[in-house]
Computed example of a mutant assay.
Amino acid sequence: MSKQDETSGVSNAMHTYRPSFFRTQYTEDRVKLESLRSGGGMVFESDEIKRQLKELVRCRYPSGQLSEVEYDFHIHELLAGRSMTEYGVWVYYPWRKTLVHLLDEAEFIEVRTNRNQYKITQAERDTLATKKLGIVGLSVGQSIALTIAMERICGELRLADFDELDLSNLNRIRSGVFNLSVPKVIIAAREIAEIDPYLEVSIFPSGLNTTNYTSFFTDGGQLDLLIEVCDSFEVKIESRFKARELGIPVVMDTNDRGMLDIERFDLNPDRPILHGLADDLTPEKLRELSEIERLKYLMKIVDADKLSERMKRSIPEIKRTISSWPQLASAVVLGGAITTDVCRRILLNEFTSSGRYYMDMEQYIA
């Protein structure tokens, strides 16, 4: 099954997540754009291309303050005989009914990532642009996906989650009440497109399961890294066996005490999954476990004795006074930052270790 097949169930207009591109130097695109404008499909249009061109010039001449005459001269050179309207690309976001005039891809990326220099060099940026990342779980994963997109540490993101947005999710998922019942993968993919329409995003709105692991991991090229932050115990285990089989590193943020797990199956293909905490668990044995047995495994995997005190007090209340384990926006945002930082260093071969790490704010700021 192709990645496009995976999105077929959410391909209607309400669930679209890919913008459309129009380059008005081409007659066909110009006709389509005029039809869009006249057909009532657009309620807002933003044309700040001159501002972007001016910033492009500033990025290329950073040493001094240019005069307006000098800016106009350099912009005139960039236009190279084209009109301002024909320069760059017009991007249409159908879920917002909004048209935006932007720099085309290479110049857009040059300007958008300019403030990364030299924490991320141009050579590193170009290397990262070749990387493919998969994220399973779009609660904690949404924060990770958006941070990755803003920092632009990859060229492609594959997002998997079967769930839709509920009101209670808004304590930690950056969205709005108008998105209630919208699939979480759609919400994340749209936000990424609004940050960077050139970043390739594929969605798996049925989540991960035994029918689509191969598609998620390998279609369109094998993943360079898997970020697993889902609730499903089965997917946690099965996805690691698949990652280990393919030699793909796995990163997991647990959202309590800033706990981060790193498993370098690319460097150590015989490494036991989850640092050996899953004992002799196999995908076959996994299907035979009772709910109580799964909970016992889960408590061993997260090292229950090292959970925060508030999380320890919360676990006995699950299915009694609360419906699930608690998560806070501050911890989710921290997880997005930590995970993105570690993933960038893994992709650039700057970090080669496996293990469990904690970034516990209550420990460091007390």
Rank of each mutant, 00 (worst) to 15 (best):
L33V: 12
I315E: 04
M150Q: 14
Q25L: 09
L286N: 10
L334S: 08
P326F: 06
C59F: 01
M14N: 06
D303V: 11
R96V: 03
T210P: 00
L260E: 03
M361L: 08
E263G: 02
W325A: 12
L267I: 09
I365S: 12
E245M: 14
S38E: 09
A331Y: 09
S239V: 02
E317W: 03
G258H: 09
I292M: 15
D279E: 14
E86T: 02
V182C: 11
K319P: 00
H101G: 07
R60M: 00
E164P: 00
S83W: 05
D266K: 12
F162W: 12
L348G: 11
D47C: 14
R174D: 10
G247D: 07
L347K: 02
R96W: 07
V251E: 04
L199Q: 13
T218F: 05
A145L: 11
V182T: 15
E110L: 12
I173H: 04
E164A: 13
T130G: 10
V201Y: 12
D196T: 00
F204Q: 02
R310C: 07
K54A: 06
D266I: 08
P249Q: 11
M299D: 01
N255A: 15
E124L: 08
K184S: 03
I227S: 07
S83C: 02
G81Y: 06
L199C: 13
V333A: 08
L199N: 07
L348T: 10
Y61E: 00
Y26H: 14
L53H: 06
M14T: 04
Q4D: 01
N169S: 05
H15C: 05
A129L: 10
P272T: 10
Q363F: 06
A149E: 01
R356K: 08
D256P: 03
E124F: 09
A129H: 07
N169D: 11
E284N: 07
D266P: 02
S330T: 12
S83P: 01
D253F: 15
E191A: 13
E200P: 03
A188Q: 02
Y93K: 08
D161H: 04
R115D: 00
Q122C: 08
I203C: 06
L33M: 14
I120D: 02
N171E: 03
K3R: 14
I203S: 02
Y92D: 00
E288K: 15
I365T: 11
L226T: 01
R345M: 08
A243D: 01
L289V: 06
L128N: 01
G221I: 06
L307T: 06
E228D: 13
D161M: 05
P269A: 11
E34I: 12
D126G: 04
A278D: 01
D270Y: 08
S330P: 00
K319C: 06
E293T: 13
A189S: 06
D196G: 05
P183L: 02
